[in-house]
Write a protein that binds this DNA or RNA. Sequence first.
DNA 1: CCCCTTATGCTCAAAAATAGCATAAATATT
DNA 2: AATATTTATGCTATTTTTGAGCATAAGGGG
Lengths: 340, 340
Amino acid sequence: MPKAWKKQSDSGQRELSIELSAALVAVNDEAPKILLVRGQGDDSATHSQFGLPCGPFDPIGHRTLEEGLRTWVREQSGIHLGYTEQLYTFGDRFRDPQEREGGPRPVSVGYLALVRQTDLMSPENADWSDWYRHFPWEDWRAGAPAIVSQVIASGLRAWVETGETRIDKQRRRERVDMTFGLGGATWDNERVLERYELLYEAGLIAETVADGRSRNDDSLLQVHTLMGAALIKDHRRIMATAMGRLRGKIKYRPVIFELMPPNFTLYQLQRAVEALAGVRLHKQNFRRLVANEGLVEATGQIANQTGGRPAEFFRFRRDVVRERPVSGVRLPSRVRTNQQ
Amino acid sequence: MPKAWKKQSDSGQRELSIELSAALVAVNDEAPKILLVRGQGDDSATHSQFGLPCGPFDPIGHRTLEEGLRTWVREQSGIHLGYTEQLYTFGDRFRDPQEREGGPRPVSVGYLALVRQTDLMSPENADWSDWYRHFPWEDWRAGAPAIVSQVIASGLRAWVETGETRIDKQRRRERVDMTFGLGGATWDNERVLERYELLYEAGLIAETVADGRSRNDDSLLQVHTLMGAALIKDHRRIMATAMGRLRGKIKYRPVIFELMPPNFTLYQLQRAVEALAGVRLHKQNFRRLVANEGLVEATGQIANQTGGRPAEFFRFRRDVVRERPVSGVRLPSRVRTNQQ
DNA sequence: CCCCTTATGCTCAAAAATAGCATAAATATT
DNA sequence: AATATTTATGCTATTTTTGAGCATAAGGGG
């Protein structure tokens, strides 16, 4: 066995590079944002395209992976990262065609980083872009999004029909139904990545076109148009991973406060959660939950630009985290939206 | 910016290697098991030590990271992996002192793989070893383990006292209390990694000694003895990550069935969950929960070596997974254990 | 002052979790 | 054979948590 190891490691380790990428997430009132920077890579073809802040891991200069990431982000956006969490390591080739021919095999470590609203100014060459511009089907706050029922559902049904065998079609249909909550299944807001990968596989995504995959239906082109410009490399996939992870995490760890200013009203907090989760929540129950968890305490200050009765400002109780295993903002009942 | 990138990537990418490691987990009735293999690495010093199945990622020979992992596991243990999940990518230097001086900088991608009980035969050079031999403080099925109250608590208290400033001590105490559920806090069975890292930092772990860190208290030696032999590299840390992840996952995804034989009694299922979670559960409520979730269906067959009234065999309903977002085996109330 | 808005307190019913009691059906013990 | 012991399984009473909504408070604008 040591022999096989040796052989492999001698032949294999040459063409390796590790890329560090960060999905910087913030919430601006109603809108979840992600930071995109322009012109990553020395390749002139990708120079004008947008992507996540990223850069190669330098085993000599970087003490740890996370430190390397922080350095790149600081360099490319001027932002000093706070809360950071590793997402996933992708070892497939990037889907960007430029990366296809030859060149080093990229292994990409994706991170999720949370940036507080107050630190939000768009740095040079960078842009805080709305999540849902890149994933319009993920926003259910105003009910089922039109793009799902009008474009995606039919596009996926078409894809189901292109299955080879009957079994194959059956399997595709099940997968479509459960990831997109069609055919009686329920929409699970955490399956962001699964939905993205499914759309990608079905050829309904901008990247597919860039990849040179076939696209022979007009409705698909329509989807493509709705998607906005593709990001470089596999950055859209990392975004999807980040969104899914964050949606899961806010339910059982109080990370939402990493995104809030020091003082906030309960409704601001609710709107931030709704923006990330992509659903509307029942207001009274939301405040009861937050209050019962003891996550926040009143400051005594009053906000009076609310448009109605003034709201009280609250702050996060950092100390509760030390007291007991504290579960984030468990989502109370979604408010039924009468669309769809 | 592209300039900085270029500079970094030219100087940085030489000494890089990616190691793939798998924590293969199985449950044998009462005991959670993990597969250790002997003699990984061509270094003769580590040749007789045990570690997880692992090997370097070969960017030419391996199509994906996971495929590389499967290949290595197959080669080293003969096992063809089923359910597999990426855990984390570690970029710090291995803690093994052999790796310290020079040599390529290791980046290690850890995986969790679940192996069914029925496939359980110990391959040559490999050994299914009990989790709790390596983490005795994690097993609370018979109440608070003696090692926590008798050795770890005092060891950690001593470590708290070696804090420099008052603030520092305070911080250490809080961390100790919340990770080990001391001082009124509750034990969170998912914080396996945090506990391991804390013990490591406090110098209470076998690896610490191997690392050449100081150890100047007799009670610590006692802990060291209790821990069993250290594993190579950072494999104990990967194990801890795997255990924590799995404990979390069984609660919201039905992965427990990946570890069960096709047919099982409800009590066997409960014992498997208890073995992983490290706590005892309320029997009647457990079966009600499982039944209500519709995760299993009766087969009609009867087991009669139970030692009491014969139990019915059940099987996992694979189809429910497709029907709806199915939440694993939510742990019902822990049965109070009157120890501690 | 009425009407709009948002904030916040409170209630009532439904659902789920917790903790046992009780009985059935086997094996082991006397 | 009778009795104790063990495990399986059904059922219930109580408490807790959720879901949904009513009602009132407190601001601004006509």
